[in-house]
Amino acid sequence: MGYFGKEFAKGLIVSNPVFVLALGLCPTLAVTTTLDNALGMTFVVLIVLLGANIIVAAIRNFVPTITRIPIFIVIIASLVTIVDLQFQAYVPDLHASLGIFLPLVVVNCIILARAEAFASKNPILHSTADALGMTVGFMIALLIISAVRQTLGTGSLSVFGFHFFTLPVLGEQPIALLILPPGAFLVIGLVMAIFRRTGVMKSE
């Protein structure tokens, strides 16, 4: 349990995939307009990262070193295809709003980086913990950014139809910039700076 807990915890803050390792920035910025999209993307990453880490860890002793990257990519691409088809069938709205960022999970650096740097060298249990920790770290980053963008950008916060609150003034005149693409860069930049200022993360 000790190992499991350690591998899990490191993904949350110390090597948070988004804020510290700066991996997987493209989906982080693109899908954080609403909490719904952020949670949908987290779910996709959870399934693919968990599946890829477990499969790669299971076959790590049989894969020839020289062809390992193409093999990993095919495993990841197959998992993404499965998730893509399932989403299309069961949650078509979410599938449409994630758009090309669902198939683009194939080239998400987090997944290939974890398969190559961790799962190809560690047993299945450790790789599972690593995948879960990285996914939770990814989710934390996505939730922080999307909560800020949705609250200030639309004036209210709701998730999957459940309404939390509407801000008094911003409800009528939201800061639309935050929903637009430049707003994504602004929020992630300021969140990173605040984390460094308060000592949660190290400065350069």
């Binding site: 300021l190 700076a193 200022r197």
Partner: peptide
């Protein structure tokens, strides 16, 4: 500023 160096300022 120290906490803005590197990535944060690039985002801005």
């Amino acid at each position: 500023p120290k906490s803005m160096r590197g990535l944060p300022v690039a985002f801005l």
